[in-house]
Design a protein around this nucleic acid. Structure first.
Lengths: 216, 216
DNA sequence: CTTAATTTGTCCGTATGTATG
DNA sequence: ACATACATACGGACAAATTAA
């Protein structure tokens, strides 16, 4: 005895129990975002399991981005809004859907939606884009679109977009031409005028051009 | 020596590297759903890390429901559509009501895009929907939308949609009313007539109704 | 039916890198 | 510089479940 003993209850894997208990502990202990969790050894003692088991549970939560561990410091509660859901699943989902056209189309859908959401709320955030467009010379389209996604306020869509952006060899990571600039100005203008139909059309036609240019 | 050695590179945690390599291995080895992965000890040898590290990676994937392990048998590749993310993340995230709105909006973006893509190609696939709508009595909206996503041919968008659908407590998993039916008929008609503007409007207005009905 | 081999489940001990005081 | 606390990682040991001989 003393080694692989107890296992009091039964089937539901021990480490999943630990995950549950960790959540309880976080709640009871009122641990805030950025707050420190007990050390692995302390957790092992308090929850009466081995350190390895604690680590398996901790690592699971870390992969999801729910906690953050720093060697020499400890384990900290992360901002759960920054969870890694999309990233983790994508590695398994994108495995068999590697069609670049799908990625492209899906990304565009998210961009359209961003415009849609921006036009429903106040679009004062767009002033940042306007200024950057006027002032900055070597600005990239990628940055502009990203700002557009951020301005929409949909963090989930942003995450997915960022991911798709990484996966696709994207044609926006280059300095913009004058033509590109005028497109963007028209787009922003359409948004400000409240003409969603036009805004969507501009986004689409302009990306079609890119699409024909770099199929890959 | 030979214990806590190497750690050649630096920051990106070893076990996340293992998760990545595991995914590669699954792909290269052509392991199908339900198929068996190498044993923990074999993985430890092949990937040249300790068994504990392999377990941390494996346990992370198990918590997500991406793999399944059975004592005495081995580790098996699970159907990723049966992932456990809802259960795991919900307890951490569901408090944030804004994120559920994000899920809803993002899902709708994908549905809009599906309509868009269907209208660009031949939409003969829609006949299935039409028939089901005429014949079947206890048909669910969820099924219809899913078929719409399938018909679009974008597998990536479909997978993301399926994921978001599980994520949100969705209001479509119930028999359709007569009003819902007429909405769908109008929608399909608009698609067949080639009036995308109208089709998008129908989709949107109808989902607004649902949104107001079940906030949650 | 018994036995042995395989595999996951769990624990422990140990060495090392890193941050803090 | 030193000691302490902590996460990181390795390897060994034994328990328990399954499978095959």
């Amino acid at each position: 005895m003393g080694k692989g003993d107890d296992m009091t209850s039964a089937s539901p894997k021990l480490f999943t129990e630990i995950v549950r208990q960790l959540r309880e502990l976080i709640e009871q202990e009122r641990i805030q975002i950025g707050g420190k969790l007990p050390s692995e050894r302390e957790l092992a003692e308090r929850l009466e399991v081995g350190r390895s088991t604690i680590r398996e549970a901790l690592r699971s939560l870390e992969l999801l981005g729910l906690i953050e561990t720093r060697r020499g410091e400890g384990t900290f509660l992360a901002d759960f809004r920054k969870h890694k859901l999309v990233e983790v699943l994508a590695t398994f989902i994108l495995k068999d859907t590697k069609s670049t056209e799908d990625i492209y189309a899906t990304r565009q859908a998210l961009e359209k939606q961003a415009i849609h959401e921006i036009m429903k709320s106040d679009f004062s955030n767009l002033s940042i884009l306007k200024n950057a467009l006027e002032v900055n010379e070597d600005i990239e389209q990628e940055w502009l679109i990203k700002e557009l996604m951020i301005a929409s306020g949909n963090r989930l869509a942003l995450k997915i977009w960022l991911l798709l952006n990484e996966y696709s060899s994207n044609p926006f990571k280059k300095p913009m031409s004058e033509e590109d600039r005028s497109y963007w100005k028209k787009l922003i203008q359409a948004v400000e005028l409240g003409d969603e139909m036009l805004a969507q059309q501009i986004l689409e036609s302009w990306q079609y051009g890119v699409k024909g240019e770099t199929p890959q």
